[in-house]
Design a protein around this nucleic acid. Structure first.
Lengths: 337, 337
DNA sequence: ATTCATTTTCGAAACGTTTCGAGGCCTCTT
DNA sequence: AAGAGGCCTCGAAACGTTTCGAAAATGAAT
């Protein structure tokens, strides 16, 4: 069941089997044939631990996910699955690690136990202790979202600012005068969650440029909060006729609140933002929105990470994805009161 | 950075460091102290691959998930996250492997490369080739859902039959005469997906016992299908006044269809089934439903698996969870026409 | 036949642990 | 004072690979 057994049966040395398997040195076709026959017959596969030990690499990537306590959103979920698939394409496996809460042991085990060749960090904060930890451990990593000095690190990100900006212009073009941004949770904003901050800035700046009134509100990542949030918006700023959101988890609640208030989308109220396309299409009516391209992000993150692992001295690369805004039917001209 | 370095600095042999770390043999408090100091100072952690090689176990569990192409449902997602957390409690990591589609290489790599100590199989079919593969590879595994001979294998399952049965009785008690089961997709049923089959049987049998009319319909796992499905129900069986579902992914579409048809829940139509509690509570109105206890299932699956790994000759254990049906507000007395 | 270059194969070391058997050093007993 | 028994510690082997340097085999050219 080990390489020695194969060697014995094929009448060669262990190293020859190894070379036949890896192709790192030529092996005569005759012996290669013999070795392959034995391997097929016995269904042999090299022991991953031994190989990792000898090679100094595990062919495994770490994926640090938000803790289960924080409900994963649809995009995050799609992202996890896509990372696994993208890694599989390159014959790599994915080790999951929750973070935050009391799961630091898991993170630490992965980082310092040399269990993985590199790490993908989701839901990164502007100042993130995990980034420091990975840097000091000298472990290659790619973040989803970028940190303070964009040029100095490897990351993939979505151009939230540009996307939000275009949403606002779109609404302004349709004649809306009072718009609101439904952001993600207070805590995330306070913790320095990049997309939330950039969305806010882009939102207010663009609104100002367009000469329209902008309001902002934070909302926990769950339907009930979305509903409460929207009701609050209606009472605080009754003139608001359109909303931009980056909080997809809250959407069902927003939809409910719209319905309760007797508002028809897009006749009475326009809704847009940055939303996974599947979710946008499932909405009623389908949402005009910038799609978060989870599959593509996952692919890029894996490619970047493998590139970094392959060449430790490579200069940091990154990519800012600017998905298009897909026009569906949730935005319309402001109705003159 | 390796155990030899620690040993040198502490002035002891490598084995002593190992024993100090594992506690498998006593070490004098003085040397233990010295060793710990050095370890803390250098931030040393044993190399996971080397340890796995020597110990013959990886302290890693494999989790085989449905392929990303099939959209993961909310419960599945919660389950994955919970498995990771449950494993973390026991200082184990989780390796993800997609299955189905063209991902057999990934599954094979995990199984035969001895990368994991055991496997948890999600979304199992009544006749599942992966089960055979794991059995022949002599790798411990636990399935979510059970196979043909329940006593012969390790599994965790939800008592779909009992749950569905109680839902039907509940509806019958409320006076409903014509009920429908919204099942999962045609393909899953055809492939022999246990829960779908058991739900169907329990549904029709119980309805018969109660003397009410039962209809069954399959529905793809997505909102659009749910909507189409419900509309079809209305035209084919206009007398139906209540539905039982195990297809949570389709729920948003069902809700939309209900609304479009001008049906109020629970006044005009009752809705219940087996649904993750979070989803049930987010529904409007909150659904009376049997909660799929994803967190508990994950915990049990991990416990069973670790038990099996710890004692290879243990006799198979399993547990059938029978979550209670939580009465919320989506079911009501049939309105006399 | 000898040399030389090439192709193919081998043996040994290395990767970083764990674990087993044995040896050293106390202290207690006789 | 010598032996017995405990406690600590050590050295060496083992886990299953990869990889390096060198040896053996082959074939061509002198």
């Amino acid at each position: 069941m080990n390489i020695g057994e194969i060697a014995k049966r094929a009448g060669v040395s262990r190293s020859t089997v190894s070379y036949a398997l890896s192709g790192k040195r030529p092996v005569s076709t005759a012996t290669a044939q013999r070795i392959n026959d034995v391997i097929d017959e016995l269904g042999y596969r090299p022991n991953a631990s031994a190989r990792a030990l000898a090679e100094g690499r595990t062919r495994t990537l770490g994926l640090v996910i938000p803790p289960a306590s924080a409900r994963l959103t649809d995009v995050q979920l799609a992202f996890v699955a896509s990372v696994v698939e993208a890694a599989a394409v390159h014959d790599h496996d994915v080790l999951l690690s929750p973070s935050g809460g009391d799961h630091d042991r898991s993170f630490e085990r992965i980082v310092t136990g040399r269990r993985v060749d590199g790490v993908i960090l989701m839901e990164i904060l502007l100042q993130d202790p995990r980034v420091d930890r990975l840097t000091s451990a000298d472990l290659p990593f790619v973040t989803i979202g970028h940190v303070e000095d964009p040029a100095a690190s490897w990351w993939v990100d979505v151009d939230y600012a540009g996307l939000i900006s275009r949403c606002v212009r779109h609404l302004a073009d349709l004649g809306h005068q009072d718009v609101v941004l439904i952001n993600r949770s207070d805590e995330l904003v306070a913790a320095g969650y990049g997309p939330a901050l950039r969305a806010t800035t882009a939102f207010t700046t663009t609104a100002e440029e367009c000469g329209i009134n902008a309001h902002t509100v934070c909302c926990a990542d769950e339907p009930a909060a979305g509903q409460a949030c929207f009701e609050e918006i209606r009472t605080r700023w009754p003139d608001v006729t359109a909303a931009v959101t980056i909080n997809e988890a809250a959407l069902p609640g927003v939809q409910r609140a719209l319905h309760r208030a007797g508002l028809d989308v897009p006749r009475d109220f326009s809704l847009t933002g940055v939303i996974a396309d599947r979710l946008a299409e499932d909405f009623h009516p389908p949402l005009t929105a910038g799609d978060v391209p989870a599959v593509e992000m996952a692919r890029m993150a894996v490619d970047l990470l493998l590139g970094q692992i392959g060449d430790e001295s490579a200069t940091p690369r990154h990519s800012m994805l600017a998905p298009p805004i897909t026009l569906r039917s949730s935005t319309g001209a402001r109705r003159r009161a």
